[in-house]
């Protein structure tokens, strides 16, 4: 029986995803020696910022035993409303105000999800499916549906703030924006909450067994409420960073991304039934999705096959553990 553990290491999602990433890098470096370089790395990191922040939020929800498909709508709502507000009334405000407002709006929208889920006891998928429509519909109907391309100057400048910039020997230019620090901070804070606070352990606990959590006196409602507010806040942050980096606020953006983000998180080993998920796995999952999106062509697969590749990864990544679990269940009596 004990041997199962060492075996399980090899079928753990983190390991699998890491192996696929390494294999990808090896094949890519063989077919194009320039692949293994700083520009590739910074592109990967840059591409992972928004996706990564979303994914961390989704991971927390999955750990708590729920699911959230509304976070993209929260993000675009918070981002667009904030930008519109700034552009219309106080364009000279600093970027951190923009961030703060956007996160606050995100938190408020997350709180609405939280109320339906924690107090009305509605299934999480259905609530967030509904609020996805509501938030987006409200945004486009009552806030605005036009692209804002003249972002407040400080928001625009934020995306130009670089942690470092450099030029390669072959003359190619690379840099990493400070926005990346946001992802790092989010990861650190989330790690702290999940592993160093009773609240975080309660999130794992309700994901493991909501009934047991009630019985030992965990405040299930408050915990669930926090989870959805937290995801909302992260979505607000991701949204404003997205706008700042793409230099426009487009109310039609982001929505539609939710399933890819969930896919990344699940690839990283979080389970839909709740209780399981790691930051390492989630970030690896995000990395894999970003690599496939950016660099499929390097290993000789045309970019039109991108979504086939991601789909196959999801099927294999979730299929192997599922198949293993099914066989283990058949073996046991």
């Amino acid at each position: 029986m004990k041997k199962l553990f060492s075996k399980s290491f090899w079928i753990r999602n983190e390991t699998l995803v890491a192996i696929v990433i390494i294999a990808f890098i090896i094949i890519a470096s063989i077919s194009d020696p320039r692949f293994l370089s700083m520009p590739t790395l910074t592109d990967l990191l840059r591409g992972g910022i928004v996706l990564g922040i979303f994914a961390v939020g989704v991971m927390v929800v999955l750990i708590s035993g729920g699911i959230d498909v509304s976070f993209t709508a929260v993000a675009v709502f918070a981002m667009y409303t904030t930008t519109l507000f700034l552009v219309t009334f106080v364009p000279e405000l600093s970027w951190y105000w923009a961030f703060g407002i956007s996160m606050l709006i995100g938190a408020a929208l997350g709180a609405i999800n939280g109320i339906f889920i924690a107090w009305f006891g509605l299934p999480t998928l259905i609530v967030t499916l509904g609020t996805l429509s509501i938030y987006r519909g409200f945004l486009l109907t009552f806030v605005g549906s036009k692209l804002i391309s003249n972002l407040p100057p400080d928001m625009r400048d934020f995306s130009r703030l670089m942690m470092f910039r450099n030029t390669n020997a072959d003359g190619s230019f690379y840099s990493l924006p400070w926005a990346f620090a946001a992802l790092v901070i989010v990861v650190i804070i989330t790690w702290f909450i999940l592993y160093r606070t009773t609240l975080g352990r309660s999130i794992f606990a309700i994901g493991g067994s909501i009934e047991s959590a009630r019985r030992i006196g965990i405040n299930v409602r408050a915990t669930q409420f926090f989870v959805y507010v937290y995801v909302g806040t992260l979505a607000g942050l991701a949204g404003i960073i997205y706008a700042s980096m793409s230099r426009v606020a487009n109310p039609f953006d982001l929505v539609g991304l939710e399933l890819s983000v969930i896919a990344a998180v699940v690839l990283g080993g979080a389970r839909l039934i709740g209780g399981y998920g790691t930051l390492t796995g989630t970030l690896l999952g995000v990395a894999l999705i970003v690599i496939v999106r950016n660099s499929l062509i390097v290993i000789g697969i045309p970019s039109t096959w991108q979504s086939v590749a991601i789909g196959v990864l999801i099927l294999v990544g979730t299929g192997l553990p599922a198949w293993q679990a099914k066989r283990a269940a058949a073996r046991a009596s």
Binding site: F204, A205, S209, G274, G275
Partner: peptide
């Protein structure tokens, strides 16, 4: 202690 033990399987 209930028959299902009310434990957290993931912890």
């Amino acid at each position: 202690i209930f028959q299902d033990f009310s434990l957290f399987p993931n912890l």
